[in-house]
Amino acid sequence: MSADDWRPGATMDVLRARAGLMRRIRGFFDARDVLEVETPILGHAGSSDMHLDSLSLKARTMNGDERLWLQTSPEYHMKRLLAAGSGPIFQLARAFRDNETGRRHNIEFTMLEWYRPGFALEALIQEVAALIETVLDRPFPAVRLRAYRELFMTHLSVDPLQESADTLIRLRHQAARHAGAETAEWSRDDCCDLLMSLVIEPCLGRDGLDVVVDYPASQAALARRRNDSDGALVAARFEVYLDGIELANGFDELTDADEQQARFEADNQARAELGKPSVDADQRLISALRAGMPQGCGVALGVDRLIMLALGLEHIDSAMAFGTARC
């Protein structure tokens, strides 16, 4: 705590530019007839993703004392709107992820999330690129689709989709070499996550927008799984990179209620193995999927990072009025 802590982390010029970018985002969707929605930050269900830590709090509601969760993204509520017939929707939402603090992470952050019923993944990728171009006012020389497997082959000469013991040894070796980490006990996904973050990411999004596609099926989260051109099972999702920074994460959304229920259960099993608390499956989301959510794609984009890129800021604290350290 210092005497200067009361001051905002962003300059007034940054805050004015930020407001301008938010207006452009709203204008972009208005022009495309995508409805702006607001859903609650607090909900009865937390995220079951094994790598996300939700914050929760105790509240006194009509049901008495209850535990409510701060959302890690507005995904569940927005999908329920889709199932209720909303059509295309977007939201500028606050989201919270415990334990995430760093140059590009703040526990509370602003997420732009939107859903496009009827869109294929490729159509949504084009729309994400158009949005980023519009907001940054910076046309890209190229929007390149890069398969996850091809990136690993090029940068690390290892096929991440191979499930052999030999591949695992090579991934662990590469991870240890590049990161100075004790990787002897690491899983394939741990090694891939590390190599992606440390070796491949920094090379992406230079002189254009790179969109990584065809993730390993084990990293599907809430995306559908499909076969790639070589017949390997992959996750139908993408991530968008600009200037070495991950900006957005898109999915061909899972709409099958049974599969969703199975993933909740698999997530909780994985959480238990990591010693993380179990998170109740969101039964209202399951019911919504059972009622029928239209097939389509959705994407979440980190607005604070977009502002960092637009204004050339090095730290997320200087892109928002008060980062967690100051609030």
Partner: peptide
């Protein structure tokens, strides 16, 4: 100490 994290997945501290 810097946090690095892929879009979805394990977080690391460099």
């Amino acid at each position: 100490n810097e946090l690095v994290k892929p879009g979805k997945g394990q977080a690391f501290n460099r």
